[in-house]
Amino acid sequence: MPVHMTIDELKSAARTLRKFLAESGAAQLTHAQSLEAVAHTAGFRDWNSCSAALLAPRPLAAVPILRVYDEVATRNFYCDYLGFEVDFEHRFAADLPLYMRVTRGGVHLDLSQHHGDGTPGAAVWLPTVDIAAFHRELRRRDHLVTLRPGIDRSAPGGPTVELLDPFQNALRFCELDD
């Protein structure tokens, strides 16, 4: 199971778990026991396996840059509709184009208003764990434009939900075939 947290973040989660259980009177855990519980939750057999996996060298990860034009439409689509969170925003000055990174489930997308960053009409393939749950989530959300995406079960690679953002970039959320 891929974990998109650092060791420090998992240790913090273990401290939070320990404190919560103690304050609620449910259990008194040692720090080592809370680390083991967090490791199991992350899909590892124990804390040593978890920390070894997180410290192992990782392959380079590409972050696509998608061209966007309208900040309000960008936030509405990527954050409000798709559920991405803003990692950072940058402008060289208040009246200059926006560059921001959004993240969801360990997937990063850079969205840029800068001329030359990305090409309108790009396609990005996004691996997704449970496409049916993702599809239900989208169907529950309101959006300025009523989008009613379906699941293409004949797409190469696995079941896919494809959406066009307001700038004609194609986002292909795909659950891998086993």
Rank of each mutant, 00 (worst) to 15 (best):
N48T: 13
F88E: 12
A32W: 04
V86E: 13
D152K: 00
F20L: 09
E89I: 10
I65L: 11
T128V: 06
L171C: 06
G83I: 08
A155M: 03
A170T: 14
L55I: 06
H40V: 03
L111M: 02
E175Y: 08
R172V: 00
D142V: 11
F84A: 02
T146N: 09
R148M: 09
P59S: 10
T103K: 06
L111A: 04
N48I: 03
L164P: 02
V68L: 02
C50A: 12
A53Q: 09
T146Q: 13
D152L: 00
V107W: 09
P2E: 13
G158L: 06
A39N: 07
A56L: 03
R67L: 04
H143C: 15
K19V: 12
D178S: 15
D70K: 02
A53R: 06
T30I: 04
I131Y: 06
R67M: 01
D165R: 04
L55V: 05
A39E: 01
H4V: 08
D117Y: 14
F44I: 05
D95R: 12
N76G: 11
H143G: 15
R45E: 13
E137Q: 15
V124I: 02
G118S: 08
A94V: 10
L147T: 01
H108W: 11
R75N: 08
L147D: 05
F134D: 00
L98E: 06
P97A: 04
A73D: 15
T41H: 03
W125N: 13
P127L: 04
V107Y: 06
G106V: 03
I151C: 04
P166Q: 07
V3K: 01
G150D: 13
A39C: 03
P166M: 02
T30E: 07
S34D: 04
L60C: 10
A39V: 01
M1D: 06
R104V: 12
W47F: 08
L126G: 04
D130A: 12
R15S: 14
P97M: 05
I131F: 09
Y81M: 11
V86N: 03
D95W: 07
D87C: 12
V72T: 14
L10P: 05
C50T: 01
E71F: 05
V102K: 01
E162H: 07
L147Y: 15
H40G: 00
A94Q: 13
A52K: 15
F20R: 14
C50D: 02
Q33D: 10
W47S: 02
L21F: 10
D178F: 01
A62W: 07
A14F: 08
V86Y: 07
H135L: 05
L138I: 00
R153I: 14
P57M: 04
H90R: 12
T160I: 10
A27K: 14
L144C: 09
R15N: 12
A170H: 08
A122M: 12
L82R: 07
G25Y: 14
D117S: 08
P64W: 07
I151H: 03
T160W: 03
V86L: 09
R139Y: 02
P59V: 10
P2N: 10
A26L: 15
A27E: 15
L164G: 14
